[in-house]
Design a protein around this nucleic acid. Sequence first.
DNA 1: GTGAAAGCGCTAACAG
DNA 2: CTGTTAGCGCTTTCAC
Lengths: 344, 344
Amino acid sequence: MGRSSHITLDDIAKRLNVSKVTVSKALRGHPDISKETTQLVKKTVQEMGYTPNYMARNLSSQHSNTIGVVIPKIAHFFFSSLIESIYDTAFHNNYEIILTVSQENSEREIKHIESLLAMRVDGLIVSITQQTRDHTIFERVKKQGIPLTFVDRVFDIPGSSTITVDDRGGSFMAIEHAINLGYKKIAHLAGYPEINIGLRRYQGFEDAMKLHGIPVNPDWVIYGGFGEEAGYRGFMRLLNSGNMPEFIFAVTYPVALGVYAAVEEAGLKIPDDVDIMCFGNSDVNRFISPSLSCVNQPTDKLGKTAVELTLDQIRNIDMVEPQHIEIPTELILRETCSVISRRA
Amino acid sequence: MGRSSHITLDDIAKRLNVSKVTVSKALRGHPDISKETTQLVKKTVQEMGYTPNYMARNLSSQHSNTIGVVIPKIAHFFFSSLIESIYDTAFHNNYEIILTVSQENSEREIKHIESLLAMRVDGLIVSITQQTRDHTIFERVKKQGIPLTFVDRVFDIPGSSTITVDDRGGSFMAIEHAINLGYKKIAHLAGYPEINIGLRRYQGFEDAMKLHGIPVNPDWVIYGGFGEEAGYRGFMRLLNSGNMPEFIFAVTYPVALGVYAAVEEAGLKIPDDVDIMCFGNSDVNRFISPSLSCVNQPTDKLGKTAVELTLDQIRNIDMVEPQHIEIPTELILRETCSVISRRA
DNA sequence: GTGAAAGCGCTAACAG
DNA sequence: CTGTTAGCGCTTTCAC
């Protein structure tokens, strides 16, 4: 069983001939209780192997000491390092994280948010799926008065905070670098324009093209998602169109990997036949051949800020204005997009 | 505030002029309640924007519908894909996962387990850190009657289940393959022998060496951990010893990456100067140069089985014997360890 | 400093 | 089919 075998506050109280209130307070270091009593309680708790019951504590105290997190994917560097940073920051702030993974599926996202609400998380951090279009669940979250912070893939929900990187600027830097290298025939695998990172990264691309007087070829702006499949299919479409660009800018690292796979399958070579750069980095990038030049997103800072922002809102509810923080990005140059080693 | 603004069962009950028990039952689809009442309740719940309170539900029903997970690391393919599989399986079984990350730190591991116990998770899945040596926390878990399943990095705790891959056999296959290719000077970066995967993978290595009559050179069995740093330092030690092996078998994929970094820094080339293979795969392996031949661990199956085993124990507590499942591995041959392209 | 009373929101057991 | 009665284990007033 074990179900009734749990030791409760009352058990220790009885053993010590005090009330459970005393024990409860002692355990939480309440100043009401004398040093000796506190000592004694703690010792007894050890001896009896008491484990507090957070469900009871939370129900009674009306908060859970918990932040809910919803992210689209986990087995990709961007998200796994983001999560690691979120966990770390929460740990140092004595908060628990309840993580859920939507698998890029917006229905699942909604289910998870509902669970998290039912678990009475004190705050919510979310990065929306690539197919999320509907705001209503997030408005419900705000209506319940729960602090809500979006990371990277954001929505503009009144009362919620957002923390993103400078997508537009980063994208601009990348394209400008490619142009300076001499590329003119530039394609962009652009995710989805309905998702902020898709839109903003496209805008940065467009900015750079315009500034340098290069017209954007609509056939070379290909939407289709933020995952490997999108990169693979995108490249195949370019290939089959018979009009290949010299350079591809991929909206995410996974999209770039999809391109790598497709290029290899087509019997072509990066960067000789087509060059590439992407938004986002990876821990194994240095081992990949050719290693990818990219726009780096500081995931550590993204995660840390997301938690801190949320915590701020939790602790000073109603007092803190929602914030919109944008973190700068930097170009990391590796083997791709570094020299033009071919064509006339 | 929002704190008192939550709608409760009682609120809907009053509105409908029924008791909250009726509402509670209707919501959970209890057969007691008539179709019409159930319909009506569900409609009202929608209208009023009711969100159930799991803390209250759990406290009352004495279970949390939740499995706690403790893993050492998240931003590495093995763990992130393991977690993805755990989440997926839990989702399909209508269970929540509460994930914690120990960061390879055994004190943190203990803290997390204590939190999870306090949260009254129905079961626990853990993969121990590389520095965990002490069993007591796990014995405490068992004493509390909580189903406990270890994945991959396991302890032998009475009453707990384990799910591992065939570490010894996989390791054996890898070494035998290298030997058949003609290698005799074989080193093993072996993790830590106190952790099962370290021990078992070493044993497989030793088995193969013995079988083929090749003596194990103790200088070529290097311990030091399961992460990249361990691979880096391990290779540097080999390099500086002045007695370089022809072939290195790395206990994990990250260790192999550490070797890659060190080899490059030393101005050497894989596989010409030193060849390598490792235990464990990665999603980006095919893009890495040279791509790594490895022993594949089916993380999907590991995660799925871990959850199912735990669920079994939860649902039939006291009725189910703890199990010890070992999943077969397979060799995946890529560019390393495929032909000997050099030396006399 | 300590404790008694009340209740967090829900479910289980039983009675009607 | 529906409702009443009791808690789950803890924290929060507010007395003493």
